[in-house]
Amino acid sequence: MATLREPVKVFIVQSLACFETPQQVADAVKQEFKIEIERQQVASYDPTKPTGKNLSKKLKDLFHKTRAEFKTNVFSIPLANKAVRLNELQKIYDDPKMNRILKLKLIRQFKDEMQGYELQLLDIQLKQLEIERIKTGDGEGADDPTPVKVTIQVVDASRSDAEYQPDTECASGKVSTTSK
């Protein structure tokens, strides 16, 4: 096994945290740092695997932090953005070397990308209207000023003679100012 410097270790840990395979990481290390390492050595830098159980706390923390950021920050990946995907498809479509069959496939892919887009816009508009209706107090969403009385009755269920007794005051709708 090759002895690795700290920047290489950090590169390996962050790559594995972004769900790259050990072979992909080994190839990337060879290309980036001109160091040839085996995929088994790369796998030892993954704390989620048995081979990575002896990884330093610093590298484990880096792995988990990087993985959490990677999972939550999907929008930093350009292809996760629909506009970027459509733009790339448009560039391919505009290529003069593109034949009709491939253009037809691209049109279908465009259609698939756009499916549901109108529904998303409609949902956004409906939500905005609902928020506006609640703010202005119009219709069913308006606040109801009718007071409501809530009574909680505690019964000792451990007693053998305990049983449910409805509160006649609540049933009648009368409000009492006296306390028991």
Rank of each mutant, 00 (worst) to 15 (best):
T151Y: 05
M1K: 12
I124S: 15
I152H: 07
L102W: 09
T151F: 13
A2T: 15
E88S: 09
R67Y: 10
E118N: 11
A142H: 08
M98G: 11
I134F: 07
L62H: 02
D27S: 04
Q31I: 05
A83E: 08
E69F: 14
I124C: 09
D143C: 13
D167A: 10
Y164I: 03
K91I: 02
M114T: 13
A28N: 07
I37L: 15
M98R: 05
N54C: 09
T48I: 03
D112W: 03
Y93E: 02
V8E: 01
E130W: 01
A2G: 12
E32G: 04
V13F: 10
P47Q: 04
G173K: 08
Q24W: 06
P47F: 00
P47D: 01
I35T: 05
G116P: 01
E6G: 12
E140C: 09
K30C: 02
S44Q: 13
V42Q: 00
K34E: 11
P78C: 02
S160T: 10
K97T: 03
T178C: 06
S176D: 06
Q41C: 13
E113D: 11
N99S: 11
T3C: 04
C18H: 08
E118R: 11
M98T: 15
P145W: 09
I124K: 07
S176L: 12
Y164D: 10
V155C: 07
K65M: 10
G173H: 03
R108N: 15
I12V: 09
P7R: 00
D46W: 00
I101M: 04
A142S: 05
Q153N: 12
F63P: 00
Q125M: 08
I101V: 15
D123S: 04
K9L: 02
V29P: 00
G139M: 06
E38C: 12
S160V: 08
T72G: 02
I77F: 14
I134L: 04
K91T: 00
T72I: 14
I12H: 03
D167L: 07
K105Q: 14
A171F: 15
V10T: 03
K127H: 15
C170I: 12
K135W: 03
Y93I: 02
